[in-house]
Simulated assay, not measured.
Amino acid sequence: MSSTLERHVVTVGGLRVGAGAAVVIGGRVSLRERRGPAGEVLRERATLVEPSCAADLPVIAARADAVVVGAAWTRDIPLVRAAAGLGLPVVVERRPSASLEEWLGLADYCAAEGGDQVILCEGGRLNLGLLRAARTASGRPVLADVSADAGLSAAAVAAGADGLVLDHSLSAGADGPAPDRSLSAGADGLVLDHLLIAGPPVPRASHPGDDATADRTAGETARGAMAGEAMRVAEEAVTLVGALLRPETPATLPECREAIDRVDAALATLLERRAALAGIVQTLKPVGGFAGRDPGRERDLVARMARRAPELGEERLAPVMNAVIEAGLHLAEDRARR
Score class of each variant (00 low, 15 high):
S99C: 07
E113S: 09
L120P: 06
A111R: 09
C121V: 01
L128W: 12
L131C: 11
G129C: 05
W103H: 15
L130T: 04
G105N: 06
G114W: 01
E122Y: 01
S99D: 07
L120E: 05
L104F: 01
L104K: 02
L100F: 03
S99M: 04
G129K: 01
D116L: 01
L106P: 01
E122S: 15
D116P: 02
C121A: 15
S99E: 05
D116W: 00
A98R: 06
V118N: 10
G129H: 07
G115Y: 14
W103K: 07
C110V: 13
G123V: 05
G124L: 02
L128H: 10
Q117N: 13
L130M: 15
S97G: 14
A107P: 09
W103R: 08
E113F: 00
Q117D: 15
L106M: 09
E113I: 11
L120W: 11
A107V: 06
S99A: 12
Y109F: 15
N127V: 00
S99R: 08
L126P: 04
E113H: 00
A112I: 01
G129Q: 04
L106T: 06
A111S: 13
G114K: 04
L100N: 02
R125Q: 13
D108A: 15
Y109M: 12
G129Y: 10
S99Q: 05
V118P: 10
L106W: 04
L131K: 02
C121F: 00
A112G: 13
D116F: 00
L104A: 11
Q117K: 14
L128F: 14
G105M: 08
G114Y: 02
G105T: 04
Y109Q: 14
L130W: 02
G124E: 02
G129W: 09
S97K: 09
L128E: 06
D116G: 14
I119G: 03
G129A: 08
L126G: 05
S99F: 02
E102I: 13
L128D: 07
G123Y: 03
A112H: 11
C121S: 14
G123E: 08
A111I: 05
G115S: 12
C121M: 12
L126C: 07
D108T: 10
C110N: 07
A112L: 11
W103L: 13
